[in-house]
Design a protein around this nucleic acid. Structure first.
Length: 201
DNA sequence: CGCTTTTGACCGGCGC
DNA sequence: GCGCCGGTCAAAAGCG
């Protein structure tokens, strides 16, 4: 996550691309917003229940290792894929003019970052379902809209390739996941169990 | 068969 | 009021 802050300084893209303006807006947000993402969510959901491990597995109250992994910021796993290089990341609040039908809610946390990748969709560990694609003005590339497939989670993300530099993909997350990252949990489950076992000794 | 993607239609905000 | 634009819906198609 920290490298995002460094990334801000490296942001040297130019142009009057609409998307870039949006990116600039996000960048101008106070740094505080970035740290909000790092803070635990209000609803520290019972990660043990979502682990997918054997039901009824004893979760000793000593150390809730799983909860230490919460929250998983959207970019947390972004840098882990070797083929995708995070160029820059920023965080901001949703614009005052929420468009489209439906939820014109209070500001939701928004997080945008750029990755240098050939794949439009980076594997951040969460499962997404595409629900729309739109051609955007001043860009030869369409913008794709994704929603988190988790029932109770309505986090969305937009993915668009930069018109200026087609090797760069801009991903904008909206909202914060209220559930653990399934993939990561799956991978860490054996380790977590071992740690719990050791902590009992 | 269930889940995901595709894609045109629809909706609401905004500028003129 | 009208048209443009971005975001979402939902039916159909695709896929494992």
């Amino acid at each position: 996550m920290e490298n995002f802050r460094e990334g801000d300084d490296r942001l040297q893209l130019q142009g009057d691309d609409e998307l870039f303006h949006h990116f600039n807006y996000l960048q101008s947000s106070p740094l505080m917003e970035q740290q909000q993402l790092l803070q635990p969510q209000s609803s520290t959901c019972d990660a043990a229940a979502d682990l997918g491990g054997p039901p009824g597995m004893p979760m000793p109250g000593l150390v809730d290792w799983a909860s230490l992994l919460l929250p998983l910021g959207p970019g947390a796993a972004a840098g882990s894929t070797s083929q995708q290089q995070v160029v820059a990341g920023v965080v901001g609040e949703e614009m005052g003019s929420a468009r489209g039908r439906g939820s014109r809610k209070a500001s939701r946390p928004r997080f945008a970052f750029q990755t240098k990748s050939e794949n439009d969709v980076l594997d951040d560990g969460y499962r997404w379902r595409k629900y729309g694609q739109k051609a955007v003005k001043n860009s030869a590339f369409p913008r794709s809209y994704y929603r988190c497939t988790h029932h109770t989670c309505n986090v969305k993300k937009q993915v668009q390739r930069l018109a200026k530099d087609t090797s760069i993909v801009v991903t904008t997350y909206e909202g914060v996941h209220n559930h653990p990252c399934e993939k990561l949990m799956e991978a860490l489950n054996p380790i977590l169990r071992q740690l719990q076992f050791l902590s009992q000794l």
